[in-house]
Simulated scan of single mutants.
Amino acid sequence: MTNKFEFLARWGYAARGVVYITLGLIALLGSSAGEEASTHGALSNLLGQPFGRFLLGTVAIGLVGHVLWRLAQALLNADNQENNLKGYLARGGNLASGIINGVLALAAARLVIASGGSSDGGGSPAAWLMQQPFGRFLVGVLGLVIIAAGAVQAWRGISGKYRERLQLPSGKSDLLGGVSVFGLVARGVVLSITGGFFVFAAVVVDSAQAGSVPEALDWVRNLPSGTYLYALAAAGLVAFGLYSFIEARYRRIDAPEQADVKRGMAKAASAVDRLS
């Protein structure tokens, strides 16, 4: 490992893997027992395990590392994206991912501090957005962004684009590649369904219609042959968790040096000063 930032980035991918494997297993095995197949439910489940507070704290720290890595990708262009529309969209997606994982890290930290209290992390993002000026428009745009992000993720799996930054060992390439494709496609589909709920919420002006992972899985279960599709989607979330571990081990990470981070922070501070 080249520096501590790379260690944090890999730790972050592994932490995301723990969350999604737990989420998928809850959906596969725990839903009949009333457990919530959501990211909050997955975090609460981790807290209930032996040494749960330590485990969840470790995941929370890892998620913070993942956020920092996403910010480095977005703001410092750590992946060396080209200065074109495609590159800017990729960096924008990394920024959005950083924000989402930041919320997840905060939820994990709150659960650790509260010892698994009954806090549900507050109202939904759609409810908050709907209360803002042009709230209906904002919720609709967010839904379209989520749909696009899910479609791009699924396409990265189907097209093999995910391999561009992975250095898979030749003897395990097919197996690890198969798990990666399955996980990326499944998570992309679930993400797109979730985005569709946000768009529907904007159309009917009802934030309660903006669902998340549980609602997306329930929608799949109500389709023809839904029981099998639900199990496939849940298994796909487990596969995405395994893909996160694959990234933690085999992804090429061009971690920024300390001087790059300082320059980025100086630029951000300068931009804030200009806006204030």
Rank of each mutant, 00 (worst) to 15 (best):
G171T: 12
Q81F: 00
Q132Y: 02
I193D: 02
S32Q: 14
A239N: 07
D206R: 13
V19F: 04
Q153I: 07
S180H: 13
A269C: 01
T22L: 07
S276P: 04
N80C: 13
F5C: 13
R91D: 08
G102I: 03
L56K: 02
R251Y: 01
L229V: 03
D120Q: 15
S192Y: 01
A33W: 08
G160T: 12
R91P: 01
R110Q: 10
L104T: 09
R136D: 00
N222Y: 03
D273W: 03
V185K: 14
L23W: 11
L223V: 04
L23H: 03
Y20M: 07
G195V: 03
G122D: 10
A271E: 11
A33L: 15
R16I: 02
R165P: 01
Q167A: 14
G48A: 12
K267N: 12
S212M: 14
F245D: 03
D273I: 12
N101P: 08
A107V: 02
I113G: 00
R274A: 14
Y20N: 10
E257G: 15
Y88V: 13
T2Q: 15
S212E: 13
G188M: 08
G41M: 13
I26L: 06
R221T: 00
P125S: 14
K267G: 03
G87S: 10
F7S: 14
P125K: 09
I100T: 14
A96T: 11
T22D: 05
A127P: 02
S207P: 09
L242V: 14
F51P: 00
Y162R: 14
G87D: 05
G52L: 01
L166V: 08
R251G: 02
F54N: 13
V59G: 05
G196Q: 11
S180C: 02
A114G: 11
V19L: 12
V139H: 00
L43E: 08
F7G: 11
R110L: 12
G62S: 04
R136H: 05
A60Q: 06
N3V: 04
A33G: 10
V179W: 10
S32K: 15
E215I: 03
A208F: 00
K86P: 06
L166W: 02
V261W: 03
V261T: 06
